[in-house]
Design a protein around this nucleic acid. Structure first.
Length: 485
RNA sequence: GCCGGUGUGGCGCAGCUGGUAGCGCAGGCGAUUUGUAAUCGUCAGGUCGUCGGUUCGAGUCCGACCACCGGCUCCA
């Protein structure tokens, strides 16, 4: 009786001729199920092992009352409305051309702008917080991934090789080996450490066809990737500071509810036991000092490093894994990294891999679902749309657009080719944060009618000056500036 | 990758047991000049995912491939 809880198994019988064992528990009688609905059918591997046969599994949901069932189905419908794949199409942000291939998105002007805004904020925050930029190519010779161990440990996750002039090239699945080469380009002094290299690095990973899922699971993704090289004595401090940076960045995007996971050594892994313990202890130290709630995930670490994964809860309570922090003691050895210490001896640096968005694409998807497409003003492709009541008000609208543009806002004007109600509707469906209606009355009094996204009633006769002043606080955030330790 | 399903103009869909494609929205043009969630008219747009097969004839049937959807497994 392996694989069962100590409290035992249950036996059930649903006809005279059929009995089976089950982990249970069971309802004493189906009369306890007042409302149910079958939802889907799918294959499932016997005992969760893909080497075994598949069984047909029928999924259903059961509730104590009809209204509880209806609530549940409503929540499902709500989640479907937030589906980033649907919103991406509706808001004209991105799509996946079959001609390019599965899991390889293209971003349309509006989506590319949102991406740019995310990356720009991140980039400025990193520059203000002690990071230096790096830039590296998308492919490398097999030599690099032989040294790094990727071809030994991670080959099944890599795109297949390309041959050229007698050499074999691979698209990179990670940026770390290339950042390491930048570190190695010079002899490094302890005075340079911690050295933090940052790059929006696009990597390619072979994902099996059945697992692709919109922007959340793709084959080409951009990591907000950094590799930090530090002295062993700096590790605890650096990780603590880093966790603070992670949380501040996620907060800047309006996300609040976090939980961390400390993932320890997996079975398939490299390195000495005491090194793993030391790295794991440093991560735990940082977690304790940051006061973030965390759980232990035994054996869930990467093959080369233990890690902290940060999860967040979105607006409707779903958990997403985003940031990851990994202490790596292997790659510094494999690449024979060193720095000259204060006593003029050669020492091995420690290395930290970290990504805060995780992948820009996936984080984009999370934001879309969290906000149901209504991105914060600073991330909205169009922040303000001005609607003149009739043609005669268009000059006033254009002038207002110029003034708002000068104040740094992204503004459009929608002229009077259609009735006002139709234009308002169109813009509301686009989830524009501010829709300004201007008519004769506004022209005379130098005012605007403000429709704030999410409020049902417009604010009429708002002074233009006042609106501009209010808006300028929302259109662009200040980059983070986490003090360098 | 595996199991099941889907694939018709930009989007959402219709197209009965095979007889050479329709609707709504979006789009173009024209009229309308509108004070807060759909003004009217008109026009254009599809080798029905791709390739192959069956048939006198395929959007409708069969096969392979591609992509997507729901799960499973995977996510270093």
């Amino acid at each position: 009786m392996e694989g069962v809880s100590p409290s035992g198994v249950s036996v059930y019988r649903n006809s005279a001729s059929f009995a089976d064992l089950c982990r249970g528990p069971h309802l004493p009688s189906t009369s306890y199920v007042k409302a149910f609905k079958l939802t889907r059918v799918a294959g499932a591997y016997w005992r969760g092992d893909e080497k075994r046969d598949q069984l047909q599994r029928i999924y259903g949901t059961a509730w104590e009352s009809k209204s509880a069932l209806a609530d549940y189905l409503n929540r499902l419908a709500e989640a479907e409305k937030r589906d980033h794949r649907k919103l991406g199409l509706e808001l004209d942000l991105f799509h996946f051309p079959p001609e390019i291939g599965g899991g390889l998105p293209v971003f349309h002007p509006k989506g590319a702008l949102v991406r740019y805004l995310m990356e720009d904020f991140s980039m400025r925050s990193h520059l203000a917080s002690g990071y230096q930029l790096a830039w590296t190519p998308h492919i490398a010779k097999s030599t690099l991934f032989e040294i790094s161990g990727h071809l030994q440990w991670y080959k099944e996750g890599m795109y297949p090789p390309m041959e050229m002039e007698g050499a074999t090239y691979y698209p990179k699945p990670m940026n770390c080996p290339m950042h390491i080469l930048i570190y190695k380009a010079h002899q490094r002094s302890y005075r340079e450490l911690p050295m933090r290299l940052f790059e929006f690095g696009t990597v390619y990973r072979f994902e099996r066809s059945g697992v692709l899922h919109g922007l959340a699971r793709v084959r080409g993704l951009t990591q907000d990737d950094s590799h930090i090289f530090c002295q062993p004595s700096q590790l605890g401090e650096e990780l603590t500071r880093l966790l603070g940076f992670v949380i501040s960045l996620l907060r800047a995007f309006g996300l609040e509810d976090f939980e961390a996971e400390l993932a320890t050594r997996p079975e398939k892994s490299v390195g000495a036991e005491d090194e793993w313990e030391e790295a794991t202890a440093a991560l735990q130290y940082a977690l304790e000092r940051s006061g973030i709630s965390y759980v232990l995930a035994e054996g869930e670490g990467a093959f080369y490093a233990p890690k902290i994964d940060v999860h967040l809860k979105d607006a409707i309570g779903r958990r997403w894994q985003v940031s990851t922090l990994q202490v790596d003691l292997q790659l510094p050895q494999l690449f024979d990294l060193e720095f000259i210490d204060s006593d003029n001896t050669r020492q091995r640096p420690y290395m930290v891999h970290r990504a805060l968005f995780g992948s820009v694409e996936r984080f984009f998807a999370i934001l879309l679902e969290h906000y149901a497409g209504a991105l914060p003003t600073w991330l909205s492709p169009t922040q303000v749309s001005i609607v003149p009541v009739k043609d005669g008000n268009e000059d006033y609208a254009a002038d207002l657009a110029r003034r708002l543009g000068a104040a740094g806002a992204r503004v459009t004007v929608l002229g009077a080719s259609e009735p006002l109600g139709a234009r308002i509707r169109k813009l509301k469906l686009e989830k524009i944060p501010f829709i300004l209606v201007v008519g004769d009355r506004d022209e005379q009094a130098q005012t605007v009618g403000v429709n704030r996204r999410g409020s049902l009633k417009p604010e009429m006769d708002v002074s233009t000056e006042k609106f501009i002043a209010e808006l300028s606080g929302e259109i662009s955030p200040k980059p983070l500036d986490v003090e360098v330790a």
